[in-house]
Design a binder for these strands. Structure first.
Lengths: 247, 247
DNA sequence: AACCAATAATTGGTCGACCAAATATACCAA
DNA sequence: TTGGTATATTTGGTCGACCAATTATTGGTT
């Protein structure tokens, strides 16, 4: 009650500090765990204190600690064994420092980096697909391209089918990690696609031909040409995005 | 009570089905949400039913639903607005299908895929680093290499310093996404490093020279040679790992 | 009828309590 | 002393209840 009054009285002063409260609670916990590690209290390889103790030490509920641990586990920094405890991953303390700070800023993907990386990944998937494709794979790829073609011919937006074709290529490449990484950056790309309206009508025809060319090279098992066709395709997208961005 | 008795009576029969229960509860929820989407009950862009309703519908607690939603949010498939609801991301329903099934299997990183992808990423980071390095960057890289050298000269294991050097190169490349992706796969690599004892004494000398070569090419701003040196370096690791694995 | 304020219902976030599995401890027998 | 078993404790997983913010509803005023 009294606290509430004080808050209202100091509203203008509170506003000046509000900017530091943008970081979410779980991020704060992550930062605290990081400090535990860098201060030497937590060496890689040994067990994390139990969630209850951490919650008490940080003065928060156990839920938030669990959230933080889950996030860290997601990025491979921790490994949680049920009914036993969480263990700091084998990676060294020095590298950990850099890792964790990066996790907190992992969303800051600027557009240039995004497209640049996508080109890299997709060139490789195209190359691998050309090397490792089976006859079954060709059927799947053809179907995916057909679906894309049908929708564009009807004048409908086909961003989904476009991406699906690319994902199928990644599957044919038969490299789990590569595909997973593509999966991770794909949502960001879609967001930016919609933001900059990359896929308008004037581009779909060219895009369709480029897709067909990529597929042809994969069918012919020509890794180099497949990669080049993919790069050409994506390079167009990049250039177009640049022009949109400068508007 | 009665159910319990039935379960005990049918223990042998239950055992036959136990194999399907290996998937974690939250994965089951993810699968269910996916079926909700593919059945058309959930179209991209509109709000997810409230957590309580989902929990009731799936016959589980709300915690598990929250876990599933958080996992999906990690991958950008959902976006949660506090006190308002979760929204299906703009990405299309078709692509979602592929995405979600992949999320469930995203941990199956086999070793070949891992090293293959690492080579790809690191070649690019080396190339970019050679293109974009500043004078300050060189100082940092040199220090990192020095730290690695010192520790190896003393005969101590220096896996951390090794990786730190690579991470520094990624930073010099100035591509957020690329660095983030390297961060993601690095823990897996370390685990496998320790498993196969890649960095033994006979290799450290060679490794050190290769690191120096990479650094030189970055200093000379020669992207092609930097990438080649990096590939050479990592290719050795791959070959060595292969031989260890076949033991 | 239109608009706005006050109130009621809904919703995700948080917390504490309970559960079952895993581990540590204590105790007894050989 | 040693080995194993039974018990006690610890631990992450799960659940239901409560909280604050948001949204929907309602009622009244203009």
């Amino acid at each position: 009650m009294v606290d509430q009054l004080l808050v209202n009285q100091n509203r203008t002063m509170i506003d000046k500090f509000s900017e530091v409260k943008v970081e979410s609670p779980s991020d704060m916990i992550i930062r605290q765990i990081r400090s535990l590690i860098s201060s030497g209290e937590l060496k890689p390889g040994d067990k994390l204190p139990p969630e209850r103790r951490l919650a008490e030490k940080f003065g928060v509920g156990r839920s938030q600690v669990r959230d933080a641990i889950k996030k860290l586990e997601f990025y491979g920094i921790l490994k949680t064994h049920p009914q036993s405890g969480s263990v700091v991953s084998g990676i060294g303390i020095v590298a950990l420092e850099g890792l964790i700070t990066d996790v907190l800023q992992i969303e800051e993907h600027d557009f240039r980096s995004l497209v640049e990386t996508r080109i890299l990944l997709e060139k490789q998937t195209a190359s691998l697909a050309a090397q490792r494709r089976t006859d079954d794979d060709i059927v799947h790829l053809t179907n995916a391209l057909r679906a894309y073609e049908d929708k564009t011919k009807r004048g409908e937006p086909a961003v989904e089918e476009d991406l699906l074709f690319h994902i199928k290529i990644a599957e044919v490449g038969k490299n789990n990690v590569l595909k997973s990484l593509m999966m991770i950056i794909t949502p960001d790309i879609v967001v930016n696609f919609n933001k900059y309206k990359v896929c308008n009508d004037s581009n779909v025809n060219k895009s369709l031909k480029e897709h067909q060319a990529i597929l042809d090279h994969i069918v012919n098992q020509d890794p180099v040409k497949a990669a080049m066709a993919m790069e050409l395709h994506l390079r167009d997208v990049l250039e177009f995005s640049k022009s949109m961005k400068s508007e």
